[in-house]
Amino acid sequence: MAEERPAKWGLVVDLDRCTGCNACIAACSMENNVPFVGEDEVAYGRALYWIRTQRYWEGEYPAVTPTFQPVMCQQCGNAPCEPVCPVYASVHSEEEQINLAVYNRCVGTRYCANNCPYFARVFNWFDYELPEPMRSYLNPDVTVRRRGVMEKCTFCVQRIVRGRQKARAEGRELRDGEIQPACVQACPAEALVFGDLSDPESRVSQLARSQRRYHLLEELGTLPRVTYLKGVGNHGG
C-alpha cells in the first residue's frame, strides 16, 4: 500500500484565460447541492454562490472594459475564519491543508463569515426545499445543509477524499490532475488549474510560480492557496 502523503491543495486562476462566463458557478452549485434562493433573496444579497465572478469596470467609454475575477474560498494557510469559530466547525485540515466547513458541527454564529476578508462564506438563511422530483439530482456525496449553517467552497473535498480512497484501494499514488473540483472540470476556458502545491512538478505548482502570479489581499497574511495569474496587457483582465 502506498504511504499516504499529506497534500497541499492549490488552485490557479488564470485571469488571462477567464472570460467571466460563470460556468464555474453552475458546476459548483450542481456538484455541491447549493440551493437557489430566488429573485428577492438574491436581490437582498443572500445568494449562496460558493464561487462568484467579481466584475469591475475599468476605464471610461469607449475604452471601458470589465475585469473578471472569480473568487471562491481561498483556503488560506492562515485562515481568519478558523480561530474565531467557537466549535471548530471552521477548521484546518492537517491532511489536505484546506479549510473545512464541518456543517454538522456548525452552530451558526456567522463570525467566520464576518471575519473572512474574501466574503467567501455564505449562510443558509432558511431551509431551501426542492420540489419533487428535483431532489433526485442532489449529490449524495455532499451533505445537504439545513437552515442556520455556514457553508463555503471546499475545493470539492468529497472528490479529494474519493480520489484518495480510490488511489489507496488501487495501491498507487495520486496522479497530478486526477482530482479536479467541479469548477475546474467545467471551466470552458481552462482558466482554472487544480493540484497539489507540495509537489513542485505538478502543473498547478508550475503555474503558481508564474511571473504573473498574485494573491488576493496578500497584505493580510492569510497565505491563500488560490493563486491568480494577472491578465496580460491593460485589457482582458
Binding site: 462566463c21 458546476a27 439530482y137 467545467a186
Partner: peptide
Amino acid sequence: VNRGRLCARGLTAQQGLYNP
C-alpha cells in the same frame, strides 16, 4: 466539440430532467 468542458446551460440540464 468541448473536450470535457461545459457551459452553465449544459451543467444545469438535470434541472430540466427533474423539473416539476
